[in-house]
Design a protein around this nucleic acid. Structure first.
Lengths: 206, 206
DNA sequence: GTCTATATCTCGATAGAC
DNA sequence: GTCTATCGAGATATAGAC
């Protein structure tokens, strides 16, 4: 028999493994056997814990979505200048993606397959506390202050997100030129600086 | 019996249908039946023309890759100022993606699944004539001229590509706020302007 | 809770009539 | 070249011993 903690642990292990496989192959492309292997358990256990592939996917998606919106939101909120806010957002956002890139990859897969799971959850979870919402608000404030040029806040937010996310999605292609492991970390750090540099300058009054 | 032209036509129809499905679901997630439906033909025909799913995928990928690198390269080459070059690149790039967004989605899927198909083809096809290579060269020239600030050309190119590509990948999520069809076109046009605005200003000497 | 064995079904692929 | 019917591999899911 198994303690309650170990049960939660196994559930967690399954979720993490499933996330990795779903992120690579998408819902339909993923194989239960592959998930079981990645979790280091038997294939039958997946069904014991989550009944079906659909239910497992749903669980992964829900689990992931909570983390995604809760991440690093606090760090951005209280900063004096817009420059600081933007820097904190970029660094914090990229760090959080770097830690769990599969989350973004899962979301991308869901977007590519035209997933219905997005609609309900995003509307439900896109609350004011999420970091992107905060950045948008700070953008609008900075425009009123004259701290930055009068750009479209939605487009600007999308631009920052694009710059922070895309290279994770495109990583294998980038790795053809930039070797993995150590160089990748250095690349990420230089990317943070570049994004802030170009975007912040791009928003400056002339 | 069927004429040679109709045969080519059917092959083309299959490729286009397969591209759409592979772009949505990836290689493993795609179903031959779905491709057949999308092409308006029988499932057996797929095997008649391409023998296997693997071979069909390979054909799609090759077909797509040629178009991808050949696109709109000429328009960028001959332009007097860096500003013009950048504007032409952004507009042309986004237009070409807008016309066939599935190409990007297929590439993203290949990246997500860590596809091996990328390595060989990209190295092989990333010749000097491709538009991104040209933009990079123009960036380096403009830096030497003092026309723009001394930024990292690789990062800058990646930034522009990110801004132009990401919103296509993320489209379903964006569509939750921005309705499809007519508004989407307007959104794309405003996006072109925004990207040029922010990036070009971001590269200006202070 | 965990494993083995197996049932059930879906999918890729082929055979064969037309 | 195109269709229907079907085979066989491989996938999800369940049964049942431990």
């Amino acid at each position: 028999m198994q303690s309650e903690e170990t049960k939660v642990d196994t559930e967690e292990r399954i979720i993490v493994a499933a996330l990795a496989v779903f992120a690579r192959k998408g819902k339909d492309g993923a194989r239960m056997q592959e998930i079981a292997n990645e979790a280091g358990i038997n294939k039958a256990m997946l069904h014991y814990y989550f009944r079906s592939k659909d239910k497992l996917y749903e669980a992964v998606f829900r689990h992931v979505f909570n983390r995604f919106s809760a991440q690093h939101a606090t760090a951005v909120k209280e900063s004096p200048t817009f420059a600081k806010t933007l820097k904190l957002f970029i660094d914090g956002f990229i760090d959080s993606i770097k830690e769990k890139p599969d989350i973004v990859r899962l979301m991308v897969n869901e977007n590519l397959s035209g997933g219905t799971a997005l609609g309900s959850m995003i509307v439900e979870k896109q609350h004011e506390k999420a970091a992107p919402s905060i950045l948008k608000k700070k953008l609008e404030e900075a425009i009123k202050n004259g701290e930055i040029r009068p750009v479209d806040p939605d487009h600007t937010l999308l631009t920052v997100l694009s710059c922070c996310l895309f290279f994770f999605i495109w990583a294998p292609t980038i790795h053809i030129k930039i070797p993995k492991s150590k160089d990748w970390d250095a690349f990420i750090e230089s990317r943070k600086e570049h994004i802030f540099d170009v975007v912040y300058n791009g928003l400056q009054p002339q």
